[in-house]
Simulated assay, not measured.
Amino acid sequence: TLGTQTDYRDGEAQTDPYSSEYVVPSGSVPELLTLATLTWGRGLPAGLAEVEMIERAREKRAWEATLPAMDNASQITKRRKMMDDMERKEWAFREQEIEKLQEVRLEVLKKLLRRREENQNELDAKRLDDHWQNHQKAKEEKIKKIQHDCALMLRKLIAKRKNVMGKLERRDIIKDYTDFASQTYAPLSRIGYFPDNHSERYVVKNFYLNTFAGLCELEASLPDSVTEVKIKAPKPKYSTTKTGFIKRSARLEVELAQVHQ
C-alpha cells in the first residue's frame, strides 16, 4: 500500500452546518413574519395602506381566536355562520379596494385625456396661426402687386396726358442738364439703371491715406507747430490797484494764499 500526504487537513474540508436565521417555537405565529413580504419600495417605508393591512391582520387573528372549536358538533353551525359573515365582510372590503383602484385609474385616465386635449388644442392653435400667417403674407403680396400695377398705370396715364395730341417731341438736352431731377442726374432703376452697381469706382484711392509709407511721408511734411504742442504758462493777473486796494474778484484768492502761508 502507498500513503499520500495532502496540504490540507480533514477539518478544513468540513463545511459550516446550516443554521436558520430565526427559530419559531411550536404553536406560536409571530406577527413579524406576516410582514416578511414587505420590501423597500414595495410597502416600505410603511404608509397608511400598510398600517391598515396590519390592523386588518390583527383583527383577523383575534377573530380566529374567537371561533368555536371543531370538536363540538353543536358549535359547527355557529362556526359556519361566523365564517360566512367574515367571508362576506372580506368580499365587501375587496370590492371597496377594487372601486378605489378603479377611481385612481379613472383619475389617471382623466389627466391623460386632459393633457392630450391640451396638446391637441395647442397644435390646432399653432396650425391656425401658421395658416393665418400664410394668408396674411399672401394678402400683403397681393396688395403690393396691386399697388405696383396702380403706380404703373398712373405713370402711363400721366405720360399720355402730357402728350395728348400724340406729337413726337425731340429731346431737349439743355433742359435735361439744367433740371437736376431729370434722368441725366437721377436715372430710375425701373428703366434698367442701377446706380449702386460698381460703386467701388467712386471710392477715393490715395497713396498717402492707404499705405503706411504714405502716412509716414505725410507726417514728415507737417510743420513742427502741428506735431509739437507748446503751452505757455498764464501770466498772473494784477489783483491790486495802483493805490494798493485789492480788487473784489481777487480778494478770495488772496485770502486763500494767506491761509496756506
Rank of each mutant, 00 (worst) to 15 (best):
E122I: 13
R127E: 14
G192S: 02
E99P: 00
D124E: 15
S221L: 11
G192P: 00
A125H: 12
L188I: 04
D130I: 08
R155V: 03
V204S: 08
K142E: 13
L106P: 00
E107D: 06
H148T: 15
K144E: 07
T211C: 02
R116C: 09
Q96T: 15
V104L: 09
L188S: 11
R114E: 03
A186Y: 02
L123S: 14
P187K: 00
E122M: 13
L168Q: 11
E122C: 06
D172S: 10
H148Q: 12
L128Y: 15
E118N: 07
A151W: 11
Q183S: 13
D149P: 00
I173Y: 05
E169R: 01
R105P: 00
K167W: 03
R115K: 06
Y177S: 08
K142N: 08
G214T: 00
I158Y: 01
L112Y: 01
R170H: 07
R190Y: 10
Q96A: 10
G166A: 01
E141G: 01
D129R: 14
D149M: 04
G192E: 01
T211M: 05
E97A: 05
K230I: 09
Y202E: 12
N210K: 06
E122W: 09
I174F: 10
V229L: 11
F194H: 12
E217Y: 07
K144T: 03
E219K: 13
E228F: 05
S221H: 06
L168F: 03
F180C: 05
E169D: 05
A125P: 00
Y193H: 09
P195M: 02
V203D: 13
L209H: 11
Y185T: 02
L128M: 14
L188A: 12
Y202M: 08
K230Y: 10
A213R: 07
K110A: 08
A151G: 03
R171W: 04
D124Q: 14
T227A: 05
R116Y: 01
F207T: 09
L123Y: 08
V104I: 14
L168M: 05
E103L: 13
L109F: 06
E200L: 10
C150A: 15
D176E: 15
L101I: 14
K160Y: 06
M165D: 11
N163E: 02
E122G: 01
R114D: 03
D172L: 01
D172E: 04
D149W: 02
C150T: 15
I191S: 09
K111Q: 09
E107I: 03
Y202N: 14
W132S: 12
L209P: 00
W132T: 13
D172F: 01
Y202I: 03
K111R: 08
